[in-house]
Design a protein around this nucleic acid. Sequence first.
DNA 1: TATTAATAAATAATCATTATCTTTAAAAAT
DNA 2: ATTTTTAAAGATAATGATTATTTATTAATA
Lengths: 144, 144
Amino acid sequence: MADPQARLAQMLAKLKARSFRITPQRLAVLQILAASRAHPGVEDIYAEVKKTFPTTSLATIYKTVALLKEINEVLEIRFFDSSRFDGNKPYPHPHILCLHCGAVLDPELPGVEALVAEAAARSGFQIVDHRLNFFGLCSDCQKT
Amino acid sequence: MADPQARLAQMLAKLKARSFRITPQRLAVLQILAASRAHPGVEDIYAEVKKTFPTTSLATIYKTVALLKEINEVLEIRFFDSSRFDGNKPYPHPHILCLHCGAVLDPELPGVEALVAEAAARSGFQIVDHRLNFFGLCSDCQKT
DNA sequence: TATTAATAAATAATCATTATCTTTAAAAAT
DNA sequence: ATTTTTAAAGATAATGATTATTTATTAATA
């Protein structure tokens, strides 16, 4: 589930299955989310889409992203004052943000499942979602 | 570091050390944050403070909480559209939110340290902070 | 007690996000 | 293909949590 082609196909299938229309602007947003590994924010997507569709409105980006969130094809990650989006792995998983350059990575953390189970066991909660975010300096930014 | 008295004393000491004034409104906010285990939001604190100081402004709550955050005596936890605050353990630790009743607990998770270390090791980041939040239904709300 | 500097109160401004409203254009039917 | 229907796009106003500003109080020091 990391291949951009497969992700795009998956997103399109989900939209079609629920009879949402595939518009050029929507397709553009899907392509960006399926391909980008940078966890773009709304403004990033907006800037990118405008290259091909200059009249696109910011509201369209917000609405498309909200729709994709609805159908569980994108994961919203709230950092401080704005959100970033993960279209590659649209399910809860950890993220790590560089406070200096803003890069967001998906660390591979095998320990996560155990931690979620531990949280459920100790709290008595039925856990349905989680956000595991780490903050610091990436290896590049540590050098400067 | 869970005794309300001790927490209040600690907060007061920190404020005095940095020569911030101890005003009645500030003291009221500190007391609430030191004593409450409910992870109150700004509006909760506001409502509580107004019982003793009816003319208090919401801005005063925001400013006091921001000040306490500055001096690391309160932890801000951002849930969806607003923040809740933890004055008992003002350092990063996991939280679990009930999506039905809004309760927030601090689950005891010994696995956290290992996970942070794992994230640092695998990503190459120097990690300085984290937010580990779980969402679900508390044991009471599972019954209904 | 007077002075001064920080803080409180009141309220305006900000800004990400959402809602509204009109226009446009997908998709289905003819 | 053309028409019809209706969701979606575009433009812009509204919302709401938070922050900034401005004036009035009040705590701390001389």
